[in-house]
């Protein structure tokens, strides 16, 4: 369904009064449009009034969406929207806020002084495959048998070997990933695990962390990753807006 031109592009919601009404340029659009904070009752929407053009999912617009949210997040509790929502006009924005005021206010309370930290970890490949071979004699035997044989003649056997390796990796991932999450869970208000995005990925999860526990969380990540340094390498991204924790259906541990 085509999106009509014009309207108000939405980034997310904040509490009324946390941010000024005008937030400068840097929004979506070409040239970058003005970012405004449109208050309705206790909740305000971050918006850019669009000109006649349509917002396309181009690089500049995607980055602008994230950038507006990140800048708001530095000064306020923010509920991020996904990219790409446009309402027809200001009245529709106000109606959207009013019609879900309770839900939005509840989320703003629950997420106050909390940030999202994203942790991912990849297995180091040689170590991972070494473990798989050591722990699965049948896979090691198949590997030895296929080793000198021509690739073309053993295509399907190789697929089966790879599938067994993938299954072994899955089992390791489940155990290793859960162990990492367990160690960090007690420092977090909530955890949002995600599917692995890479075949060597062992951890891929967002943690909702209170600002005053960030040092503690960081130290725990340092320890957890150092203990596993030979097997995995980690990346810790954040603090960032709570993208993964604004789903009202996801319970927040200790939410107020």
């Amino acid at each position: 369904m085509p999106v009509p031109a014009g309207g108000h592009y939405l980034y997310g919601f904040v509490r009324s009064g946390d941010l000024p009404a005008k937030l400068g340029e840097g929004g979506v659009g070409l040239p970058p449009g003005p970012v405004e904070c449109l208050a309705e009752g206790g909740v305000a929407a971050l918006v850019t009034p669009l000109g006649p053009e349509r917002v396309a999912p181009r690089r500049a617009n995607l980055l602008a969406h994230a950038d507006v949210l990140n800048r708001a997040f530095e000064r306020a509790t923010v509920l991020p929207l996904r990219f790409g929502f446009v309402l027809p006009d200001e009245a529709a924005v106000r109606h959207e806020i009013a019609s879900r005021a309770g839900e939005l206010a509840g989320l703003l309370d629950a997420l106050q002084d909390r940030v999202e930290m994203h942790l991912s970890a990849l297995y180091r490949e040689e170590r991972l495959l070494g473990e798989v071979l050591a722990e699965n004699p049948a896979i090691a035997a198949a590997q030895r048998r296929l080793r000198g044989l021509p690739v073309a003649a053993t295509h399907f056997e190789r697929i089966r070997l790879g599938e067994r390796v993938a299954q072994a990796v899955d089992a390791k991932r489940a155990a290793d990933g859960a162990a990492v999450v367990r160690e960090l869970e007690r420092l977090s208000a909530a955890v949002a695990p995600e599917d692995p995005r890479h075949e060597h990925m062992v951890v891929n999860a967002s943690f909702l962390v209170a600002r005053d526990r960030l040092d503690e969380f960081d130290a725990a990540v340092e320890r957890v990753s150092r203990e596993r340094a030979e097997r995995m390498h980690f990346r810790l991204l954040g603090p960032r807006p709570p993208h993964s924790f604004v789903d009202a259906a996801r319970p927040l541990a200790g939410a107020r």
């Binding site: 369904m1 085509p2 999106v3 009509p4 939405l10 997310g12 919601f13 349509r54 917002v55 396309a56 999912p57 995607l62 980055l63 969406h65 994230a66 949210l69 509920l79 991020p80 929207l81 996904r82 990219f83 790409g84 929502f85 446009v86 309402l87 027809p88 529709a92 959207e96 995005r197 991204l237 960032r240 993208h243 993964s244 604004v246 789903d247």
Partner: peptide, 21 residues
């Protein structure tokens, strides 16, 4: 990194239209 968070995480609005993605 940006795509990972803003395309399929975050609040949604169910009443109007989303940019074609």
């Amino acid at each position: 990194d940006v795509l990972n968070v803003i395309l399929d995480k975050g609040l949604v609005i169910d009443i109007y239209l989303r940019v074609a993605l």
